[in-house]
Design a protein around this nucleic acid. Sequence first.
DNA 1: ACGTCAAGTTTTGTATACAATAACAGCCTT
DNA 2: AAGGCTGTTATTGTATACAAAACTTGACGT
Lengths: 218, 218
Amino acid sequence: MGQKRSDAIADTLEGLILDGSFEDGQRLDEVQLAERFEVSRTPLREALQRLAVSGLVEQIPRRGVFVRQPGPVELVEMFEVMAELEAVCARLAAERITDEALEEMRRANASCRKALEAQNTDGYYRENEGFHAILYRQSGNSFLEQECRRLHRRLTPFRRLQLRLRGRIRQSMAEHEAIVDALEHSDATLAADRVRAHVSVQGEKFFHLMRSLKTAAE
Amino acid sequence: MGQKRSDAIADTLEGLILDGSFEDGQRLDEVQLAERFEVSRTPLREALQRLAVSGLVEQIPRRGVFVRQPGPVELVEMFEVMAELEAVCARLAAERITDEALEEMRRANASCRKALEAQNTDGYYRENEGFHAILYRQSGNSFLEQECRRLHRRLTPFRRLQLRLRGRIRQSMAEHEAIVDALEHSDATLAADRVRAHVSVQGEKFFHLMRSLKTAAE
DNA sequence: ACGTCAAGTTTTGTATACAATAACAGCCTT
DNA sequence: AAGGCTGTTATTGTATACAAAACTTGACGT
């Protein structure tokens, strides 16, 4: 067990927040959570500090920490940035990508198709992650790769939601293949545009889904 | 005194690391720093946790925390990402920017020119920051704005270095004005390209400066 | 009755004490 | 003499104890 207790707690809490297990604005009681994890307040506070830096919770001095779920506006903004970041990856990758990586992307796409035909949504989702991970890596800029992964991770629960829309998976697949084609032809602009559109549509689909859910609830 | 002691420590340490007051790989001794700041280890550890998440220090469990200065490769990567992020800001801003903001940018530029003529490097630097801050804001995407500010802050000491190059400031000013022109004409592509080039050249200048310093030292 | 103020309680922030693990040094064995 | 083992020390990680600030509640005055 190389890592310490406080790291494990931070990871667990991060997962819980991303899963939406906490309401927006809910206060995270230190002693309560300490009991729950069966530790003292010290490691728990260290975990909360980390979450605060990541932006998952807001820490108001002498008041406590409160979970901070992104609202619709912030989500749209985050998806927009994600689209732009991935577009940059594509533009850079178009000139830097290796043949092996292209082959990897094709293989990831093939696995996606297999999962699609098997109605295996989870499997599709996993392979889809892999596809994007390769794109990040092939930007040839490991700092950019890191930043992409960070934002990707933060958007995970929301991205997942919109994949449930009928027909979205099949469309997403076609976009993936078009992206690989553009990369193969080293067409930087085309690749960037296609990736941007691919991610943007995720954000838009999500937004409409939210809207329909909200109006349905009223 | 709204903030707590540990926040102030984190800020101070962040500043010290960004200033290059610590060697790369240097271990930060908890008790030693605690004495220095005249606090106990508890708030100091919380501060270190935060720095670790920000990536300014690396925390190896049961071993300690070590400052992590970006190497030349990482710096080039960071400048590349900064250039792309600001280019995105420009592209979005070209369609979203308000007339008042355009006026603000022109005013910031005028102040820059005044500082330039007064040989006031610090003043120029401050106004230059303002110019970029307006650009971020005018992307109309506050999440993007935040991310830009974060990276900008991290690159501050290195950016500052390259401004000392002869003639760079005057050239930088001209680029600023060309950027405002493109924004005024709502030419998204041109604005993006000019901003990207403007920031990229900073990275390149910095890289060459580093190289010359390194070869001179050998 | 309502607002204001004060004592009490809760909760955050900090200090200190304790535990556990890794670096270190000296000794023993081969 | 070299390498490994063991006891010691130093340092990190966690628990508990204490201090300070904010929220709560109730009484008092207007």
